[in-house]
């Protein structure tokens, strides 16, 4: 079997005695979309923030292409081509699309000054592909609609040759049409061989977009299921009860049959 693009092994992090993520292991292969499911507070976002460099794990290993890496800051994550689209979008509202797209990675002229024109030109190019209706290149992003903002956030993740993409509820604030647009994009990126972690609440969407789904509860993995082999109800059962359906290997967070019976 091929080497996973990313492997997170035995990840732990706690905040003030609460084990937010407790011995969690997940992996992700090229061209694969792995859904992360679970209640609010189940530890999905925390797990993913350790990969994106926003949090530092207490223990556990992160392997990229089979090699152990240290991710101590968002900058480290970016150096390994790990890009994140955060739930809250992480855009600076007062800046325009180009400034946000290149934030932290500005294009500069030979003299080291920020090259606004080059950045705008690149932004126009990529937005032309992602969202051809996008026209407001000089407006601060707070003047944009939810979908337009999301496309800026996605453009930012995709532009810099991401190999591993983390999407934290990318469609939470979007209308049906824009959700469809994001779904199409996920399929396209998957076809290009990117590995994608998709955090989502909607089990139907996860079934439609993902290859596998990792369900978390109370900071532990309930189980990792092939989405084609389980029903949406099975997934809900995993999320709500922590009960693994037959055919899914139970993780540390799954309840045993005895507990389920009781």
């Amino acid at each position: 079997m091929a080497t996973p693009l990313v492997e997170m092994k035995d990840m732990c992090i706690s905040f003030g005695g609460v084990h937010a993520v407790d011995h969690v292991s997940v992996d992700l292969y090229p061209g694969e979309v792995v859904g992360l499911l679970g209640h609010n507070g189940a530890g999905k976002s925390t797990l993913i923030k350790m990969l994106s460099g926003a949090y530092q794990a207490d223990s556990g290993d992160i392997l990229v292409d089979g090699k152990k890496v240290k991710i101590e800051s968002p900058r480290d994550a970016r150096a390994h081509n790990i890009e994140t689209i955060y739930q809250t979008l992480a855009l600076a509202d007062n800046l325009d699309a180009a400034s946000n797209l290149f934030l932290g990675r500005e294009l500069t002229t030979k003299l080291g000054f920020v090259d606004e024109h080059a950045m705008e030109a690149e932004t126009r190019k990529i937005m032309g592909k992602l969202n051809p209706n996008f026209k407001k290149f000089h407006a601060p992003v707070k003047a944009l609609s939810g979908g337009q903002r999301q496309s800026v956030a996605i453009a930012r993740a995709v532009y810099f040759n991401a190999r591993i993409l983390i999407m934290d509820e990318p469609t939470a604030a979007l209308g049906p049409h824009e959700t469809q647009m994001v779904a199409e994009l996920i399929k396209e990126l998957k076809a290009q061989g990117l590995g994608i972690f998709l955090i989502d609440h909607d089990v139907h969407q996860v079934k439609a977009l993902c290859d596998r789904a990792a369900v978390m509860k109370n900071g532990k993995v309930v189980g990792i299921a092939d989405v084609n082999k389980v029903s949406a109800d099975d997934l809900l059962g995993m999320i709500i009860l922590g009960k693994c359906p037959p055919g899914v290997t139970p993780g540390p967070g799954a309840i045993s049959d005895d507990e389920a019976a009781a």
Partner: peptide, 11 residues
Amino acid sequence: GNPDAAELSGI
């Protein structure tokens, strides 16, 4: 404009 965004962008 957004201190968290700046931080997450590696600033």
